[in-house]
């Protein structure tokens, strides 16, 4: 592998909440075409880091770069305009609305013509077609895009949320615990979907507590500890128990040998 380019980078990010230091000079790097897992104990600053990357939190100091250019996010909407889509743990979909409507929620396809644009008339037929095409593209086997999301299983709902992000993300997809609260089969379905997205060339950041899932899917693993990056490891070379040991502080990153990619 000849040095893939860095898509997203964060340098020396700090964030304090009163007396609590959530991020203490954290670094972060996402490479093109990879699935990067971010793991860490509770309070390690994992969520804070992700919130900074997705625009939900504004850091006190530090720099975020997208494709080598410095960016400043003031809200998740800013980040989205830059092509970064985040799927939050819950609340990602409107259950009473159809799959097609959910895919295009807030970004409806409008009918052509000046008047249609002015009155914001939606093009239901086109949205349905696009939804079908997109879901087939991601190999999500849901028969009708016109059924409401509440008729779907938990995994399928998560699939809709992920597919929506994939449809609009131009740079990065951030997934927060995408397999939490899912059964084994459903969890695998979502993992497969994430792989499909990566294979289409979109890099994915995934936050997860589920170590088997992390090791199954991640190309690299970012270990967050005490508000900083403890290291990035190669899951093919480092065992799960060693990774967890670094995460909890039982081992030093330097003990990991050549499985440690970045210290």
């Amino acid at each position: 592998m000849n040095n893939p380019k860095i898509v997203m980078q964060a340098k020396n990010i700090s964030k304090r909440y009163g007396q609590v230091t959530a991020l203490d000079g954290a670094d972060f790097e996402l490479l093109d075409g990879e699935i990067l897992a971010v793991i860490g104990d509770n309070g390690a600053g994992k969520s804070s880091l992700i919130k900074v990357l997705s625009g939900a939190t504004i850091p006190d100091s530090g720099e975020i770069m997208l494709d080598g250019k410095t960016v400043h996010f003031h809200s998740p909407i800013d980040a989205r305009r830059q092509g970064i889509e985040t799927v939050y743990q819950d609340l990602a979909v409107a259950p009473a609305m159809t799959i097609a409507e959910n895919l295009f929620l807030g970004r409806e396809i409008l009918r052509p013509g000046f008047l249609s644009k002015f009155f914001r008339l939606i093009d239901k037929k086109k949205m349905l077609q696009e939804a079908n095409r997109h879901m087939q593209d991601l190999k999500i086997g849901i028969r009708s895009m016109q059924q409401s999301v509440e008729t779907l299983s938990g995994g399928q709902r998560q699939g809709v949320a992920v597919a929506r992000s994939a449809a609009f993300a131009r740079h990065v997809i951030i997934l927060d615990e995408p397999t939490a609260a899912l059964g084994v089969k459903e969890g695998n379905m979502v993992l497969e979907l994430i792989r499909n997205i990566r294979d289409k060339g979109l890099p994915v950041i995934i936050i997860s507590h589920n170590m088997p899932h992390v090791f199954e899917i991640a190309d690299r693993i970012h270990i967050q500890r005490l508000g900083r990056r403890a290291g990035v490891v190669d899951p093919k070379k480092v065992s799960m128990s060693d990774t967890v040991a670094v995460m909890t502080g039982a081992k030093q990153p330097a003990d990991l040998g050549d499985g440690l990619l970045i210290a």
Binding site: Q147, M189, L191
Partner: peptide, 13 residues
Amino acid sequence: TQPASIQPKKSFL
């Protein structure tokens, strides 16, 4: 791995 598809639940809802 299995393809990312399962049949939709036929529901009363």
